[in-house]
């Protein structure tokens, strides 16, 4: 008993220490930076002010926030449309193939997403794999302009984020009791009715987790528009990076980060509401 309690204490402390140092402290630092004043010599200094928030909110950045939300929403919708049948097929695969399919889905995660963005460049560029293949097959004569377009940005986001939609959906759909589907079919439900009445309601928590995991990163993966979109179609993430690294206005970059975090929290509210209230198991 004592040993297990000590183990519990140690593992929990490590978790909290990790959380405190790598999650909480940076957020607090960003919060503090956002209310400081920009300074030429020391980067930031007192007096404390909310000027940066005022500048960010009134600086005409609304189009970027709206554009980011639009891009993120489109990416999420496409991920859901592709990811849902994807996850469903994996759950229906035979025991022999299921681990293999999951493994194939996970392998790209072993490589940094930055490197995967570069891989997309190799695919899409004028003398890239897609154009070479199409020309070789005689389908086109002149290379298509795929790279540095909105299409490239969208496919980059889709490629990077699809697994984040598939995995929670898979975890959810795998738990689905197949006797329920059989029961629905026995009772004369059509395929669509079975899906709408049985499968879909059961997978709502999976859909919500997937949407959150895809929607939020889609607004901030700043290197995707930079590498694949030619640094023209910009997201909120690019605005933050620009303020910090190009202009050197840290308070404003921090203020934009805080605003993004607040938007995120707002979007998480429906998720919390949808979760059943946690109840402590009696021992």
């Amino acid at each position: 008993m004592r040993a297990s309690q000590r183990f519990k204490f140690i593992s929990l402390s490590i978790t909290w220490a990790w959380f405190g140092i790598f999650v909480l402290a940076p957020i607090v630092l960003i919060g503090i930076t956002s209310i400081l004043t920009q300074n030429e010599i020391s980067i930031v200094s007192t007096p404390l002010t909310i000027q940066s928030f005022y500048d960010t909110l009134t600086g005409g950045y609304a189009p970027i926030f709206l554009y980011s939300l639009l891009i993120a929403a489109t990416t999420t919708l496409l991920c859901l449309l592709i990811g849902y049948p994807f996850a469903f097929i994996i759950t229906r695969a035979s025991n022999r193939f299921r681990p293999l399919m999951l493994m194939l889905l996970m392998i790209p995660f072993w490589v940094s997403s930055l490197i995967r963005a570069y891989a997309m460049v190799i695919m899409l560029k004028a003398q890239g794999l897609i154009n070479i293949a199409l020309i070789y097959l005689g389908i086109i004569y002149k290379p298509l302009h795929l790279l540095y377009t909105d299409f490239a940005v969208m496919s980059g986001l889709l490629y990077n984020l699809l697994p984040f939609m598939v995995l929670p959906l898979y975890a959810n759909l795998a738990k689905l009791d197949h006797t329920l589907i059989e029961a629905a079919q026995d009772l004369g439900a059509t395929r669509w009715q079975t899906f709408k009445g049985v499968i879909l309601p059961h997978s709502i928590p999976g859909i919500i987790s997937g949407v959150i995991l895809v929607f939020l990163p889609a607004m901030t993966l700043f290197y995707i528009p930079e590498f694949l979109g030619g640094a023209k179609t910009l997201l909120i993430g690019n605005l933050i990076q620009h303020e910090f690294l190009v202009i050197g206005n840290w308070p404003k970059g921090a203020a934009a980060s805080v605003i993004l975090m607040l938007i995120t929290l707002l979007l998480l509210i429906p998720y919390w509401k949808s979760q059943p209230k946690p109840t402590r198991a009696k021992s």
């Binding site: 189009p63 023209k232 202009i247 050197g248």
Partner: peptide, 18 residues
């Protein structure tokens, strides 16, 4: 020098297409 901030302001507007 100090003009960097003015450059920065317009450069940002340019890059963001504002």
């Amino acid at each position: 020098g100090k003009a960097r901030l003015i450059y920065g302001k317009y450069w940002e507007r340019l890059k963001l297409g504002l």
